[in-house]
């Protein structure tokens, strides 16, 4: 179980990295490598060229950006997980990290790399969509910002072009009042069978806005709009919880694999929707 050959380039700066991407159309970025190298060991992916960005200085930042947070492409999972700034401004992400991988993997793996890998059962894409994060992509032609909702296009497929590198993740300031994350996996820390990330705002006891985002039950993380519609406009009571759960289950078209069948994933989406919406509403205080 050894990786195939590849050319190795080490970038000293973001500009250097995107130039290398432009110069090597068969290249991709190597950040923490925790998913990529495993897949290369299995020879499931075989990039001809890797551009190692681990030496790019000052790319692992987590800093205030207005009332939100800006996270550099090299911020390691554990740094994000334990960031007080993230906890204060995007607690949904902090909560999600309780279910993401294991300590040693989080030491090396990066949030940016995880998002670009776009595994359909990954947790972080759901969080990004739920909070309305923006992903900043850079190429030799310049930078552009893509909303998380538009970033994930399919299994291992994102809106980033081959010549673009994700350089920053922007989390907005706390928009919603309530939030909750829940996941089911067979073993703790495994990729998810189903994930629901929910954000919610209440006004006068009624749901003013809601995002219910699923992962693990489709080709990529996505909002479950019918569930959101079932919530908005009324109190978060048992009737609406049931309606939202049913709508969520109806909004997904999950697959079956060795971890769970489609019927289970649908049940899980319903259960997790009910649980996250309830908890998010409670957190609205």
């Amino acid at each position: 179980m050894k990786p195939p050959r590849f050319r190795y380039l080490r970038a000293g700066s973001v500009d250097g990295a995107v130039q290398a991407l432009a110069d090597n159309p068969d290249a991709r970025i190597l950040a923490g490598g925790q998913s990529l190298i495993a897949m290369m060991n299995l020879r499931l992916v075989r990039p001809a060229c890797l551009i190692d960005i681990n030496r790019v200085p000052d790319l692992g930042y987590i800093r205030e950006e207005g009332d939100g947070v800006a996270i550099g492409a090299l911020a390691r999972h554990n740094e994000v997980k334990h960031s007080e700034l993230v906890r204060a401004r995007c607690p949904l992400l902090t909560e999600a990290y309780e279910s993401i991988a294991h300590h040693t993997v989080r030491n090396r793996g990066t949030l940016g790399g995880n998002l670009c890998h776009a595994d359909p059962s990954s947790e972080t894409p759901a969080v990004m969509i739920a909070v309305g994060a923006t992903l900043v992509l850079q190429s030799v032609g310049g930078t552009r910002a893509v909303g998380a909702e538009d970033f994930f296009l399919g299994t291992y497929e994102t809106a980033a072009r081959q010549d673009e590198m994700l350089v920053e993740i922007r989390l907005p300031g706390r928009g919603a009042d309530g939030w909750a994350f829940a996941e089911i996996s067979n073993r703790h820390g495994d990729f998810a069978i189903a994930v629901i990330a929910t954000t919610l705002s209440l006004e006068n006891g009624r749901c003013a806005a809601a995002r219910v985002v699923a992962s693990g039950v489709g080709e990529h993380a996505a909002r479950l709009v019918p569930a959101e519609q079932a919530l908005v406009g009324g109190p978060v009571d048992e009737t609406r919880l049931d309606a939202a759960a049913a709508a969520a289950a109806g909004a997904v078209d999950p697959h079956s694999d060795s971890h769970a069948d489609a019927a289970y994933r649908r049940d899980a989406v319903a259960a997790l929707t009910r649980r996250t919406v309830r908890r998010a509403a409670e957190r609205c205080g």
Binding site: R10, G33, Q34, I37, N41, D52, T104, V105
Partner: peptide, 13 residues
């Protein structure tokens, strides 16, 4: 100073 999986790390890294 922190743990890493050596099977998920290239020696060049």
């Amino acid at each position: 100073g922190v743990t890493a999986r050596s099977c998920l790390t290239f020696a060049v890294m």
